[in-house]
Computed example of a mutant assay.
Amino acid sequence: MARRKNPAVELPALALPPRTILRDSVYEALKAMLMDLDVAPGSRLSIDGIARRLAVSPTPVREALTKLESDGLVATRPNAGYIVAPVLDEARLEHLFDVRDLLEPEAARLAATGASKAQLADLRAACAAMSAHPAADDYHAYRDFAVLDARLHRVLAEASGNPLIADALARLHAHTHGYRLYFRVGIAATTTREHQAVVDAVAAHDGPAAQAAMRTHLARSRVRLRAAYEAGAGQSEVD
């Protein structure tokens, strides 16, 4: 029996500024749809169809899809081209947090003695900006918070002084996967308080406290994300 192929999806119309649409504009437009699950996981993405919808040539679409693949949001399949990457199932979510539990508390502990003044300033600035961020209910409105959240974890990993830890965490795409699973308005404040506890310990050069604060943050994030399967995976959160 011939295997049935997923049909290419029709993307909703998007209002993008004329004559200024470049690769980044296409990338951000597609990323917002994928993060908010406006296009179902597993759906095939037509390069020509996207190009027509956005009134651009196929070249910036291909470039955007390549970047989205590196983000873990799209994947390539034989005879199907690009498809929307699946949302994490429960088992993969647990595996993701198992790896984070091994790496991130240790990264925070090392950062407490290894963070530079510039890195500490970056961590404090990220926390302050997240504290001031308004509530939002979709990726377009919440994008800046998501970027700050991922940046804080990235800087902590880099401040550990171990590039292998930083590289391994970057490859997990943890925040991208987390957002696609579950997001609730109001979670930002809780997440920011947990981040602040980590940053305060790092700034005080207290390695054990930084390690414990990161462990607490990850444990609470895991609980929040597990709730996605009770509510029906497909809402989103950052952590």
Rank of each mutant, 00 (worst) to 15 (best):
A85E: 07
P163G: 08
Y82G: 03
C127S: 08
A118M: 03
I83T: 15
D167F: 00
A157W: 02
M130F: 01
T113W: 03
R77P: 08
G178F: 08
A157G: 01
P105Q: 08
L172Y: 01
A80D: 10
I83Y: 07
A75P: 10
G178Y: 06
M130L: 05
A136W: 03
V185I: 13
V84Q: 04
A118G: 07
A135N: 15
L68R: 10
R92N: 12
L181V: 09
A128D: 09
L148D: 04
A146R: 13
V185C: 02
L103D: 04
A170G: 00
T176A: 11
L73M: 12
G178N: 14
R100A: 15
S160D: 00
A108C: 06
A91K: 12
A91C: 05
L169Q: 04
L123H: 01
A75D: 15
G114Y: 03
L93A: 08
L68G: 10
L169W: 01
M130V: 01
A126Q: 01
A107N: 06
T176S: 08
R154C: 07
N79W: 12
L172D: 03
S70Y: 03
A141C: 04
A168W: 00
P78Q: 11
L110H: 01
H95Q: 15
A136H: 10
V185S: 14
H140L: 14
H95A: 15
F183N: 14
A107S: 11
Y139A: 11
V155K: 03
Y142H: 12
L73P: 01
R151F: 07
N162E: 10
A136E: 09
Y82E: 00
T113E: 09
P86G: 13
G72R: 10
L120N: 06
Q119R: 03
Y82F: 14
D71E: 15
A135Q: 12
E106A: 13
S160P: 02
G81P: 11
M130Y: 00
R143N: 07
L169I: 14
L110C: 04
A136G: 14
N79D: 15
D167W: 00
K67R: 15
R124Q: 07
A159W: 00
L88F: 09
A168Y: 00
V87N: 13
A141T: 11
D137K: 11
T76R: 15
L120Y: 00
P86L: 10
C127N: 11
F183G: 15
F97T: 10
D122M: 02
T66W: 10
E69L: 09
